[in-house]
Design a binder for these strands. Structure first.
Lengths: 190, 190
DNA sequence: CGCATTCCGTACCGAAGCGTATGGAGTCCG
DNA sequence: CGGACTCCATACGCTTCGGTACGGAATGCG
């Protein structure tokens, strides 16, 4: 019982490392997960790191787990649409990933997907999150009255579009990017 | 004049390094561009590398340049559609990036885009290629009779979809992935 | 007070990375 | 034959990274 405050403190510091790691992931990509670099960022040294984590792999898996839980929570929130609000939820999902705002979240998303190309655990994490995302989005489309096949397809198109769009820079491609995005969002939604 | 055969040979070896680098890029991602690793792959040592290249940066820019020229050539070919064949060219473009086949090309594409997030030169290269791709694709849609706004939007949607789709694993998402992809391709094309 | 636990700093090791210097084998050419 | 040039191997220095070992300050607790 008396170990409770201690463990809380430990958990906090471990969480601080994970938060710093995710921030580094957002700013410098997947290869920014270097122990001494993160230590400097935390204002401590490696000694602290190897107290809280078994090794680098331990941190990576903790980061993946934290990221996964955060994504799943977000998905649940966005999908918890009252009947009749499905279309609005769909538009909201598209807009959340529309570059400008939420840039940090997008950068993390891309960094994790980059990790997934060389790391089986990251690959599994991404697949799990994507499966939930696709399914929840599909339910929204079904709630709009679409049949199974169309809902499935539109859901995949939605996420493939938002991720692919975050890989590109099309500022100069069109005069009115906002109008462009709106057309696409409408074309995906219905 | 007599230096001609020599220079050809030199160019060939330099090209061999670049080809090896691009192959490593496809297999192990952006951080696979390491001098000694590539040297082992080429069956030589660093001594050869630093004869053909000033430094690692020199190789990266050569790789980017080679990739850029290859992409632009491909785009020109795919877009050189005879009048009336625009729609077929659009479908072909989508199918080329549909994961299964051409996996190597997709992996290179993702690796270069990963580089672009931390490297200004790579960023510029990607932007240049994307600009041409989007423009050529837009012309195809215009050739199908669409107005400027819709052609612009569908073109962006097309490329964002194919890139984003290559970031995901949706094998288990639907029973008939082929049917899924066909629905989406038709929805993007018209 | 004194001991144990928590948390972190320091020092060190081996591996791997980039880049340089230098020599040497082969080739071309007068 | 002999020099010059091409291409690469070897050896080295420097830095960074992951990981371990150990010590020490701080804190809590009997």
């Amino acid at each position: 019982m008396e170990t409770k405050p201690v463990k809380v403190s430990v958990a906090l510091d471990r969480e601080a490392w994970i938060r710093t790691a995710i921030a580094a992931l957002a700013e410098h990509g997947a290869d920014a997960l270097r122990v001494e670099v993160l230590a400097k960022r935390c204002g401590v040294t490696k000694g602290s790191f190897y107290w809280h984590f078994k090794n680098k792999r331990d941190l990576i898996e903790a980061v993946l787990d934290t990221w996964k839980r955060g994504r799943i929570d977000d998905i649940r929130k966005q999908t918890r649409a009252e009947p009749g609000g499905e279309l609005a939820a769909i538009y909201h999902t598209i807009e959340v990933y529309a570059a400008v705002r939420n840039r940090k979240g997008i950068m993390i998303e891309l960094a994790v997907r980059d990790l997934a190309r060389r790391d089986a655990a990251a690959q599994a994490t991404v697949e799990e999150v994507d499966a939930i995302r696709l399914d929840c989005s599909k339910q929204l489309f079904i709630g709009c009255g679409l049949d199974e096949r169309e809902a499935t397809a539109r859901s995949l198109l939605l996420y493939a579009y938002v991720f692919g769009q975050s890989l590109m820079r099309y500022d100069r491609y069109a005069r009115d990017v906002t109008s462009l995005r709106r057309w696409i969002a409408e074309h995906i939604a219905h």
